[in-house]
């Protein structure tokens, strides 16, 4: 996980893309919100002996926001951290189960790792 977090630093170096108009840069604060949340989530998983959640991909998304994306077998979980906002959004899908909603990235959401691992 720490390797993925370290390698995600490329995101804050991304320059405006093909459409510079309206471009929102990727802020270190946004990346920190995402990676701090991920660390807390994994601590919960470790504490609860939840295994097999895997490591998410950390990537850039629209308007300076940053994604955590788990893709494991037949399930996915996408968690988005908007730029300059204190609210994140998520959606998880697996057979016969779907979850979605908003959350405060400063809080822990251990149910997400339980859902992912279940």
């Amino acid at each position: 996980m720490e390797d993925e977090i370290k390698s995600a630093n490329y995101i804050v170096e991304i320059k405006s893309g093909p459409e510079p108009e309206g471009y929102v840069p990727y802020a270190r604060e946004t990346l920190a919100r995402a990676t701090d949340f991920l660390r807390r989530l994994m601590i919960h998983a470790h504490t609860a002996n939840v295994i097999g959640t895997g490591v998410p991909r950390i990537g850039p998304a629209e308007d300076g926001s940053i994604d955590l994306f788990w893709e494991k077998d037949d399930r996915t979980l996408l968690v988005n951290f908007p730029a300059g906002e204190s609210i994140g959004n998520y959606c998880g899908k697996k057979p016969k189960s779907e979850i979605s909603g908003r959350f405060d990235p400063s809080e822990s959401r251990p149910e997400l790792v339980f859902w992912l691992a279940d």
Partner: peptide
């Protein structure tokens, strides 16, 4: 649908959900 290669992590050329974006 066109994707900027600048959005990709160096050494990782996989498509990602973050590539699907609104423009104008």
């Amino acid at each position: 649908y066109r994707v900027s290669v600048g959005w990709l992590k160096p050494g990782d050329t996989r498509v990602a959900p973050g590539h699907f974006r609104v423009n104008k």
